[in-house]
Simulated scan of single mutants.
Amino acid sequence: MRKFVLLLLICLFASQSYASANKKVYVWRNADGVIVFSDSPKADVNADTVDISTTPNIIKSVDTKIIEGTEQPAKDKISIDIVKPTIDETIRDNTGSVYISGAIRPSFKRGLSVVLKLDDKKVKGPQKSAVFILRDVDRGEHRIQLEVWNDSGKVIAVSKPVTFFVHRASVNSPN
């Protein structure tokens, strides 16, 4: 019952202004057994007092400079890494197909594109994803690197180079 009374008190006085905080509230039951709340005591009734010492819920102001356009947000530094193939991986494919996958951090944004370099020569791109498929890659050692370009064609990020090997079976040496 006390919890109910307390909950009822909070509900009734939640909309009170800050000026009414830290005031006393008087609670008693009338002749019909109904609970009565008042800000002034009744002379002929033994009323309980409840101190309300809560401060109003005030939400701190929010910085709206970004919405208003008065302050430019800090640009995140873009980075790119080659996920597949891994360093010194041997790819065994008789067609010479190589699947290349990159990861851009923090995220791929509008206006960015990716270029693939194979053995220091641009072979694919610019394109809007960091996934490439190369066909008919010769046997042997190769080096790949990914570049991220902005919308004006400027290189803004370069991956570390990854060396991999292509193994293609031949008639002369099937292993």
Rank of each mutant, 00 (worst) to 15 (best):
D119R: 03
D119N: 11
D120Q: 05
D120C: 00
K121I: 13
K121S: 08
K121A: 13
K121Y: 06
K121M: 08
K121L: 14
K122P: 06
K124T: 11
K124C: 06
K124R: 13
K124V: 13
K124Q: 08
G125T: 12
G125H: 07
P126N: 14
P126T: 12
Q127F: 07
Q127Y: 15
Q127P: 03
K128M: 09
K128A: 07
K128C: 14
A130I: 02
A130K: 11
V131Q: 04
V131K: 13
V131Y: 02
F132S: 08
I133W: 09
I133M: 07
I133A: 03
L134V: 14
L134H: 15
R135K: 09
R135I: 12
R135N: 10
D136N: 12
D136W: 04
D136E: 10
D136V: 05
D136S: 08
V137E: 15
V137Q: 14
V137F: 03
V137A: 09
V137S: 12
D138V: 06
G140Y: 04
G140Q: 05
G140M: 04
E141D: 11
E141F: 02
H142C: 00
H142Y: 09
R143P: 14
I144F: 01
I144A: 09
I144R: 04
L146E: 09
L146S: 14
L146R: 03
E147P: 05
W149E: 11
N150F: 00
N150T: 04
N150D: 15
N150R: 12
D151Q: 11
D151M: 12
D151P: 04
S152F: 00
S152M: 08
G153L: 08
G153E: 12
G153C: 10
K154N: 08
K154W: 01
K154Q: 04
K154P: 03
K154A: 02
V155Y: 03
V155P: 04
I156N: 02
A157G: 01
V158W: 13
S159V: 00
S159D: 14
P161F: 04
P161W: 06
V162Y: 11
T163K: 13
T163E: 15
F164G: 08
F165H: 08
F165N: 13
F165K: 10
V166S: 00
R168W: 13
A169C: 03
A169H: 08
S170Q: 00
S170M: 00
S170W: 02
V171I: 12
V171H: 13
V171C: 08
N172S: 06
N172L: 03
N172K: 01
N172P: 00
